[in-house]
Each structure stands twice: as C-alpha cells, then as structure tokens.
C-alpha cells in the first residue's frame, strides 16, 4: 500500500517537471524565433533552467524511492 502512494508522488513530481521543462522549451523556441541571433545565449540558459527543474523532480523521485 505504501508503495502505491509513493508511486503517485513520483508521478506528481514527473508531471510538475514535465510542465516546467515543456514551458522552458516552448518559450525558448519562441525567443529563438523572435531573435535568431541570440540562439547561443538562449540555448545555454534553456539547458541550465531545464536542469534546475529536472533536479527538483529527481530529488522528489529519489526521496520517494527511498521512502518506499
């Protein structure tokens, strides 16, 4: 039973990170379309922010795994 609740928690963490990374990617593409000359800066910042968001989700998933 504890395992299934943890699975829901892991799913929620994944949903949150998915929304976050999706928004980052979408906005970055919009920005690149508007200013193609700034592609280098935008790409670096996009990857960085995505890594930060993903880090939060991974922390949640690891903690869920350990609690299970």
């Amino acid at each position: 039973m504890g395992g299934s609740i943890v699975a829901i928690g892991m799913g929620l963490a994944a949903i949150g990170a998915g929304i976050g990374v999706g928004m980052i990617g979408g906005k970055a593409l919009e920005a690149i379309a508007r200013q193609p000359e700034a592609i280098g800066d935008i790409r670096a910042n996009m990857i960085l922010t995505a890594a930060l968001v993903e880090g939060a989700a991974l922390i949640a998933i690891i903690l869920a795994y350990l609690v299970a």
Partner: peptide, 16 residues
Amino acid sequence: VTLMLRLFANITAGHM
C-alpha cells in the same frame, strides 16, 4: 543542500 541533492539525485537516478 540543494547543490548536494541535485548532483546526487541526477547521477544516482541515471545509474538506477
């Protein structure tokens, strides 16, 4: 603490 957890979680999750 977040620095510590981020690196740990990313690498551990990958291996797992």
